[in-house]
Design a protein around this nucleic acid. Structure first.
Lengths: 224, 224, 224, 224
DNA sequence: CATGAATGAGTATTCATTCAT
DNA sequence: CATGAATGAATACTCATTCAT
């Protein structure tokens, strides 16, 4: 999304705006991806319409098929972008310089903030799981991205255990899934929860409460 | 599902199996519901096909529309059935006679077992949330079903606090969402997790580990 | 329609109203005809729905098919009833005792009143003509009904000519069609005329103006 | 209709008839409109089938929906074309240069010729009125087309009155409706009239008699 | 004879994808 | 390589009519 805005600004400042959008293959690709991300997030894979993506991105239908091959491959490309961005955010954290407890709290809260700030990602992953991760498995780029995160968690657990602040015997995969679950499920299922519990879940105050709840739960679970 | 199985079994043992399923409004409605539950769970609301539902349930297309009105209303009926069954399971627990800790562990583990045993429900709720709970809101029957569950949680919290085993100041809605999240997210997102972490998550042993992990996390969070 | 009201009244005064409607074949037939007249007039033959007719008439679907055989035959029965009622109204006029001019004006104005008071008839005949009078031709009862009317017109023309008030050489069929056209077309096409000329055509005052216009036009046409 | 005939003729004389009709948006649109006009006129709006229109026009179903949006909008487009053609014919008359009586007779006879030559229009308007002019009201193009015609009638009435050949106090809307009614109703209801009066109404001689009848009736009505 | 469940052909409309220019 | 027209299989939904009880 950020990319699309900077692109638009570039178009205004450059000399030949009409010709610019035509020639710039990267920009066309980018506009398609941005529109596709929104459409797939809004409607899910099956509900999304290729026609809507070309309408919003203002590209020709053949361009879309030229750059991405099919609706499925376009969805895969969108997912790759999503995982890249999630990874980029999590890498920014400089957790290695923090204490184990501080690092873990930071990780939990930053994970929560991803779903809050980019709820599209949550929806895309939900849709992908309804399709049994078919597109994630197709991608050669997504799977390798998750090793560093798991490494970070393992390192935090090890440091915490050595420092005597965390228990031993924690399964890092279970822990990662719980960290994600506590915030992602809250966001992705907020509509049914709001309907069932007659309460608002997306106000800033409520979201902060949830972040603390999630971090507390993880830290209490780990406490020696 | 249980109904369909007993129906099938009855058909085999009785004299006229072909005639038995015909011209029986309740049975026809049930066959449609069973097939629809499966189809909607398999493909999500948008991916599901009415034609497939009528093919599997062996009913005439018009019967489906006569009984349920539209694909949307059929989906709503499926969701109502799902929530009813979830509620029925949770009501069976006789938690009131247990100690607060035992009751809470039982609640967490039974919630986990729902998603393990009927993963269809998980998928239906995921699809419904992609549609922003549109059908849940339409239903007059679903919302009221959730009050008793929240009451049970509040009662457990109160008893635990009075007995000095649980902390005070716990938000019951946050707690409910976390209980659900820890097991449901594990199941619903297992496909991406399995792809990313190259590990099996649905073996009996692994599921038991997850159940204990979730219960431990909740109980440690509540411990005074 | 009048028939249906008197029927309803009868039901109220009799002893066993529940049993009465079940057994009375004539009443069932009548209820179907009344509902069918309304539905066919509202939507035209193609737009009309058999299901709507059975819903309104509160009869069983099989009864409708038992009494009338098919949608087409039901429409034919409705048309027969319409033509009967039109004829009955026109026969009431006792034109033979009037002067030729008075008789002709009476005939024109009464014809106009038919379309005003029972616009359903207009619509049924319009729909029937879209189907090229298929059902009218099928009916053995409709065609003979129109001879007396044409005889009345011929007689009026003859008397008027003999009395020196009407011109000779008038084609009675052309005259009949014009008498009908001047009022029926005004009613049947009022919706487009109202849209195009931005004026109201169905107020009592406007209808009276139209009736006089039509009668004036016919009488001036005939004047010696 | 004229367009379709010239198109067909062109195809026959040119080199590549198959290629000529393909990939030409205007021609495709036109083919659809021609086929739709025929189908809607033949069966009425409700009886008409989109499938039949695409079969006759040899276009892809999606093209029809791409160009016209829906069956309703296609019908509206057909009606707009009809009203345009009617207006174009009436504008050709150069009535302003004629005497009031001559002008009025010309207007009546030309109106009659429209229904004789393009009976489809009659049927389309009849169907539209069964739908209470729903599509005419939707159109922004149809309503304005009728002002010039009414202006012509008013001008004829004024000139005739000033010349002492027409009476005063004539309502132009009533007059317009009668001019239309006398010929249109004859055509649109010819099937029932032919069945009832056992006479042929569409022979050239009979049509000429009717035209004179209608013109005589209007002119005698107006005569001072 | 009444009832309501069942039937299957059909009806407008949509969609991902390809082809001609 | 860009453009917009074309494609055809599908998709939710409807309707007149019949059958079993």
């Amino acid at each position: 999304m950020a990319a699309s805005r900077s692109k638009a600004k570039a178009a205004e400042t450059e000399a030949a705006p009409a010709a610019e959008t035509k020639r710039d293959a990267a920009a066309t690709r980018e506009r398609i991806l941005v529109a596709a991300t929104q459409e797939f997030a809004d409607k899910g894979y099956d509900g999304a319409r290729v026609d809507e993506i070309i309408r919003v991105s203002q590209v020709n239908k053949n361009s879309l098929y030229h750059y991405f091959g099919s609706k499925e491959q376009l969805f895969t490309a969108v997912l790759e972008r999503v995982y890249e961005n999630i990874r980029a955010r999590q890498s920014d954290l400089s957790i290695r310089s923090m204490s184990p407890e501080e690092g873990m709290r930071t990780l939990v809260e930053f994970t929560a903030r991803i779903w809050e700030e980019v709820p599209e990602y949550n929806r895309l992953l939900a849709s992908e799981n309804l399709h049994e991760a078919r597109h994630v498995r197709q991608s050669e780029r997504i799977v390798p991205m998750y090793n560093p995160l798991l490494a970070t968690i393992c390192e935090l657990l090890k440091r915490g255990e050595e420092a005597g602040v965390f228990r031993g015997g924690i399964d890092p995969v279970d822990l990662y899934i719980s960290i994600t679950a506590l915030s992602a499920h809250y966001i992705s299922h907020r509509h049914t929860f709001e309907a069932i519990f007659k309460t608002e879940l997306m106000t800033p105050a409520r979201l902060e409460q949830r972040r603390r709840h999630a971090a507390d739960m993880i830290l209490r679970y780990l406490k020696a």
